[in-house]
């Protein structure tokens, strides 16, 4: 039996709908709500049911043509994982070292991952840009950007 994209998608959503339905039952209701025509669980319950029905429909109607098989060949997953990791690190850096340094780090990291190796280009395309954005935000638009926790801890304030 060929397992196609539709089968995988159908199974995933069936699982999701069942889990969603289970947690929908855990939503706390106000006293007396169970006698009301509409309460916090009404829509989630309906959605869980609808989702399950549609997933089953997708599973049943899935075509078995081999062309519809999920093929992961030719995709650059390692690079994408590294970039997404960089995004997560950017979030951490924002908290610890502040906007300006985090931005410079993120841009240099991004250029580097995508194959730019010339140090001059790496710096020219990131530092002035980051400083410019930082200037526009803090000086022109008057947006408060919290300094990194690292600095607050060092300076004690």
């Amino acid at each position: 039996m060929t397992i196609t994209k539709d089968h995988i998608g159908g199974l995933v959503f069936l699982g999701l709908s069942v889990a969603y339905g289970y947690y929908a039952g855990q939503i706390p209701l106000l006293p007396g709500d169970e006698f009301e025509p509409f309460h916090a669980q009404t829509v989630p319950n309906a959605l869980a049911l609808l989702g399950s029905l549609l997933s089953v429909a997708l599973l049943l109607s899935a075509t078995r043509s081999p062309g519809n098989k999920l093929s992961l060949r030719g995709y650059d997953f390692p690079l994408v994982s590294k970039l997404l990791l960089l995004v997560v690190l950017f979030a951490l850096a924002l908290e610890w070292v502040g906007f300006l340094l985090a931005t410079i780090f993120f841009l240099i990291g991004g250029y580097w991952l995508l194959g730019e190796r010339r140090i001059k280009t790496l710096l020219v395309a990131s530092v002035p840009f980051a400083v410019g954005i930082w200037f526009v935000l803090t000086q022109l638009l008057d947006i408060y950007l919290a300094p990194g926790q690292l600095f607050s801890q060092i300076t004690g304030g």
């Binding site: 999701l16 959605l47 609808l50 549609l54 997708l58």
Partner: peptide
């Protein structure tokens, strides 16, 4: 069907 599932997903 896929689009409908995605709609329900969005509603969820």
């Amino acid at each position: 069907i896929k689009a409908l599932i995605m709609t329900v997903f969005g509603l969820m």
